[in-house]
Amino acid sequence: MKKVVMYTLSTCPWCMRAKKFFREKDIPFEYIDYDKADEGTRRSIREDCLAHGEEMSFPFVKIGEDVVVGYNPQKYSSLLDQ
């Protein structure tokens, strides 16, 4: 199964929906709330977002090697099925 990791904000409803999506499908995932993280973690999240050509818009969802920025259940599903 592809590894799912996401960067989220504790204040963002779309991040909550993204977590709910994977939870309801019983797909294990890891997440870090950017706004609750320590300085070093925040810096590495920022660098990771920029390295993917994105701004720090959340949720930032990594499914295997792919990245989806934003709440997009169709994209999540198709990447999980691939």
């Binding site: 904000l9 204040t11 963002c12 409803p13 706004d35 925040r42 920022r46």
Partner: peptide, 28 residues
């Protein structure tokens, strides 16, 4: 419901960080 939730987050952000920032974008 979404509007209410987001505005509430903005009020909290304003209290904590001084301005009603977007609840879904990261501050640096």
């Amino acid at each position: 419901e979404l509007v209410d939730f987001l505005l509430e987050q903005e009020v909290t952000l304003e209290k904590e960080k001084g301005s009603p920032f977007c609840p879904c974008q990261g501050l640096t």
